[in-house]
Each structure stands twice: as structure tokens, then as C-alpha cells.
């Protein structure tokens, strides 16, 4: 079983004791098949119990361990040491305030997610006794990929607009709104539209596509943003150029 000495350069910051963030170097012996998270756990268990970071599932589904790994937003549990032959620099997710070490403050994302009303607003209310809504596999497919978002926020760390305009609602929240808008059971698009078509909503996106590139679940937030933009534009034309439609 092959082992390798891995050099980790980890951003450390404790607001109680540090005036500013700094890098700390750890050199640990790691198994070749490990992921960066395994290396961090190894450091915490054997070298430095004070190192702080979030993690849980180790299978890319809980979304806890998003961090910058050699400058790119990644899940530490799915970043293999074998893909990083040199020194591995580990930093907290970009564009979020640092709470401590690799732990970021995610209040902004949590508030934005709630703002887009990410829940089913039924087109037609139905009691449980009446059974399930019918939804064909084709109808499911229209929104399914957007349900796969694990809220890891890598797309926010990759998004140049979010970096510049913190009020921008951002890729994951808009994708989630789009997910419900596209659901055949849902009738809540108008209620969500107020948030996502507003100033800090979809218009801030400059469509670089960085969000879709970094998504570990292969969700395509960029396409959601683009579709929402088109629909918002159509809404505007309907309202301003074709007022008779409302009659």
C-alpha cells in the first residue's frame, strides 16, 4: 500500500487570538488513495487538534466540506490527493467571511435560500387522502437536476458577480427557485419572481458559467439563470408592450 508525504498549507485564523489570517504548513504521511479531507483529519488526530473545519458524510452529499483547494472551490471529501502532486493549499471558501480556520459564516446564503421560497406552492391544493399528484418521468426530468443541489456553496465561491456584488442572490438560490418553477405541481412562480427578477436577482449574472463548472453534483445553475432571465424578459414585454394580455 503506497504512502506519500503530503505538504498541506492551511489557512488558519482564530478571531480571538489572531489579528489576521496566516498559513500553517503541515507535513503528514498519507495513503495514496486518500482525499484532502482524510489528510486534514489525519492532521487533526495526530498533529494539531486545534484545526477547525466542517465535515460529515465523506461521500459528497451533505455539502459541509466545501473549501478552496489550490485556489479552486472543491469538496474536500472528493478532492483526491493523487490529483495534487505538489503542496496543497487549503483555504476557506472564497467570498464568505471566515468564522475560524476553514469554517465560514454562511448566514448570507441561508437567508437568500429562504428568500426565494424554495418550497412547493401547489397549483391546485389537494388533501393527502386524495393521493399523490401525477407527474410523468418527462415532467420530473424538467426540474430533477436542480433538486440535486447539496447547498455546498462552491458556486458562490466561484461566482465573480457574487464576489463583486454581495447582494446578488446567487446561483444555488436561483437554481432552487427555478427548480420549483419548473415543477408541474407548482404554481408559485409569480411569488418567487419578485425576488429573483429584482435588482439583486438574476440580472446581476454576467453568465460566465463558473458556477456550473465547479458544481460537484453536475447541476447547471448557469442554465437556470439563463432560463430565468429569458422568462423575466418575456414577463417584462408582456407587461409593458402587450398590456392587452392582462385584459
Amino acid at each position: 500500500m503506497s504512502e506519500r508525504q503530503v505538504e498541506l498549507e492551511v489557512l488558519r485564523y482564530n478571531p480571538e487570538t489572531d489579528s489576521e489570517p496566516r498559513f500553517q504548513r503541515y507535513s503528514v504521511s498519507c495513503r495514496e488513495e486518500w482525499v484532502v479531507l482524510d489528510a486534514l483529519n489525519h492532521v487533526k488526530e495526530t498533529v494539531d487538534p486545534t484545526l477547525s473545519y466542517r465535515w460529515s458524510c465523506h461521500m459528497a452529499v451533505c455539502g459541509s466540506c466545501g473549501m478552496m483547494i489550490n485556489g479552486e472551490p472543491k469538496l474536500a471529501c472528493k478532492s483526491f490527493l493523487r490529483d495534487h502532486p505538489g503542496v496543497i493549499r487549503v483555504e476557506p471558501l472564497a467570498h464568505f467571511p471566515i468564522e475560524r480556520d476553514l469554517v465560514t459564516v454562511i448566514d448570507d446564503f441561508m437567508a437568500k435560500l429562504a428568500r426565494v421560497k424554495p418550497y412547493l406552492i401547489p397549483k391546485q391544493a389537494k388533501s393527502v387522502e386524495e393521493g399523490e399528484y401525477l407527474q410523468t418521468p418527462a415532467e420530473l426530468k424538467r426540474y430533477k437536476q436542480y433538486t440535486l443541489c447539496i447547498n455546498c456553496m462552491l458556486c458562490y465561491a466561484a461566482c465573480p458577480e457574487y464576489g463583486l456584488i454581495p447582494k446578488f442572490i446567487g446561483p444555488a438560490a436561483i437554481s432552487m427557485a427555478h427548480r420549483y418553477n419548473q415543477d408541474s405541481r407548482d404554481g408559485g412562480r409569480a411569488a418567487r419572481q419578485e425576488e429573483i427578477a429584482a435588482g439583486e436577482g438574476v440580472w446581476d449574472c454576467s453568465f460566465t458559467g463558473a458556477c456550473s463548472e465547479v458544481c460537484p453534483e453536475h447541476v447547471d445553475p448557469a442554465s437556470a439563470l439563463q432560463q430565468v432571465k429569458i422568462k423575466s424578459t418575456v414577463d417584462w414585454y408582456k407587461e409593458h408592450l402587450m398590456p392587452w394580455l392582462k385584459k
Binding site: Y119, L120, P122, K126, V128, G131, E132, Y133, L134, Q135, T136, P137, E139, L140, Y143, K144, T147, Y180, D183, R185, D186
Partner: peptide
């Protein structure tokens, strides 16, 4: 069954049969 239908009503993306039932 009641609880699973309730989740369906809340939007859970259950896999479907061709006719649209769960």
C-alpha cells in the same frame, strides 16, 4: 402511505412510473 404522499405534496421528487404515479 399517508406520510409518503404528504412528502410528495411537499415536492419530494419521487421517481415515477410512465403513467405519472409514484
Amino acid at each position: 402511505p399517508r406520510e409518503l404522499i404528504q412528502l410528495e405534496h411537499w415536492g419530494c421528487p419521487w421517481s415515477r412510473e410512465p403513467n405519472g404515479s409514484v
